[in-house]
Structures are given as C-alpha cells and as structure tokens.
Nucleic acid binder design. Structure first.
Lengths: 145, 145
DNA sequence: TGCGAATCGATAATGATTCTCATTATATGC
DNA sequence: GCATATAATGAGAATCATTATCGATTCGCA
C-alpha cells in the first residue's frame, strides 16, 4: 500500500469510529510509514522533533492502537508501535540483541503458509483460539556485529 | 533435565563465574523449575511469599540473566524470566492476548530444523549474525476463550 | 455563529525497575 | 575451625516509561 493510500485508509477508519485524524496523528502515521520496524514513543518524539508533545503522543498511540490502526509490541523494556497488519501487511521481525533495533521481513507465501498451518496445529493442541503468530529472529544487526 | 540435575548445572556455572548460589537464588531457580512459562518479578515475589525482597529479586534475576542462566522476555509491558534454553530446552511460547499468560511448547525436531533453516536464510539476507529465534503463537488461552 | 465532543498540552501520579549504601553472608586460604 | 576479602542482601530512594488529570482549545456540524 502506498503512502497516500494508507493515509486515506486510516482517515476512513478513524472517521468510522468518530476519532479525529488531527495534524499530530497524521504526522505520527507519516513517521511510521517512512521508517522500517516498530518505533518507541521516545523515537517518534525525537523523529517528529517534539512537534507532538510526549503526553499527546502517548495518548494518540493508545487511541490508534485501540482503533486497530497501530500494533503495539514490547522489546527491551519499552513499547514500540507500527502500522497494523491490514495496513502494513503480515510480516515478522529481526531484533538486535545489542542495540534493540527492530527490522521487518516477510516470508515467501509458501513458507508463510506452512508456518500458519504449523501454528494452527500447535494452537489446537493447547486449546488456544489462535488469532496471529510472530516469528522473531534474534541476533546482532549489521552495525552491531 | 530433572530438578536436581538442573540445580547442579546452575551451581556449576555460577561457581565457574565466581557468582554465589545463595539461598534466595536457589529459591528462584526452584520456583522457575516448577512453573511453566516465563515469570515476572512480581509473580515470583508472590510465589516465593516475599521470602526474597523485590530489590534482591530484581538484582538476582539480572545477575543470573547476565550469567546465561536465565532468559528474559518482555510482554505486556513487563519483563518475564525463565531458565535459559541450555537448561530448559529450546522451545516457543503461546501468549494469551486477554490475560497475558504464557505457555511453553516444543516443535517436533523436523519442524524445528526447518524453522532453523528458514531463520538462517532470513538472517543472512539481512546481514544479521543470528543467535536464536522465537515463534510466538498469539490468541486466547483455554480459560479466556 | 455557536454548541458539544474530542483533543491538546502541561503537570502530577503510577508502576516497574534500578541504584545506593550500610549490613550481613559466603567462600577460600590458613 | 577462623580470619578475611568479596559478593550479596535489604530497605529505601531514585529513575524511567507510561498513564491519568484537568482546564484550555479546536473541530465538525447544525
């Protein structure tokens, strides 16, 4: 999905839910579009040059997560946000154990399909109602190795 | 690995590194042996009935993680600890999106091997020095569904 | 234009985790 | 067994990320 398209998709969903798509929130979505991997509140605050104060930033991240527009993950003791999968596509993460940075990657359809089947089997075996899965590759990133 | 064996393996590794295996630390290891899935500091504190005060508990968890005896994960905004893989065996997690509980599961050797190969390929592609991987199954647990 | 709800932004409060420091326990060599 | 150096303990303060509060402001819409 290209940038304009994503913005409009977000705008639509916000409107449906009676949530305002304010300047600050558009800036957050834009910042998440041009970066790879989930971003922490502090990273976004820095990236946005303080345009959105931390308190508003946290609130907007919560509101947009609640609305299913963002997905929240936890790593290195802090919360990181990225566009939800219906906007960004299903993908997985490489996390650097040294610096904590996170990169995205996608599996080939065939491999993703196999993984999905595997996960469904495991979930059934444990009486879980499975809604998603995440494969995390851990190691040292290009600049830390 | 059975309980006694694990305790002795931990004692050995601690001794090698000049780290003391005190009563409190033995209690932590015991508590992690008899529970399934990683435990947060608060859960361990409760489980140990306050035998080990929170400040000591956090310090011991950090020391034993540093020594490669425990593995730390983050979920729901808090850190959870479990025995490292050389003690507990390589495994993955089922996490409940409702209550936050975490269960362990193992893949069949054949599937684990395939996953390992897949992860190695992805890592190489991104110039990562891969050290491990984790598959997380997300959904509703038996009691939350 | 004006009303009401949603949002903003500064600040205080919270919760998890880490740090500090005086005291205590532990291992090791004698 | 005992002294001694060193690591660990425990209580409390401090820190960091995050959430709540609240009056002021802005937006969408009649």
């Amino acid at each position: 999905m290209k940038e304009r398209e994503t913005t409009e998709a977000v705008r639509g969903r916000m409107a449906d839910r009676g949530i305002r798509f304010t300047g600050g929130r558009q800036a957050i979505i834009r910042a998440l579009q041009i970066t790879s991997g989930p971003q922490s509140a502090a990273e976004l605050h820095r990236r946005l040059r303080g345009l959105v104060p931390l308190s508003s930033l946290y609130r907007s991240l919560a509101v947009m997560s609640e609305a299913g527009i963002l997905a929240m993950h936890h790593s290195n003791g802090l919360a990181r946000y990225e566009l939800a999968e219906w906007l960004a596509g299903h993908h997985h993460h490489l996390v650097c154990l040294q610096c904590g940075s996170v990169d995205d990657f996608e599996l080939a359809p065939r491999q993703e399909k196999e993984l999905f089947a595997l996960v469904a089997k495991v979930g059934g075996h444990h009486r879980y109602e499975v809604s998603n899965h995440a494969l995390e590759v851990q190691g040292l990133c290009r600049s830390c190795r």
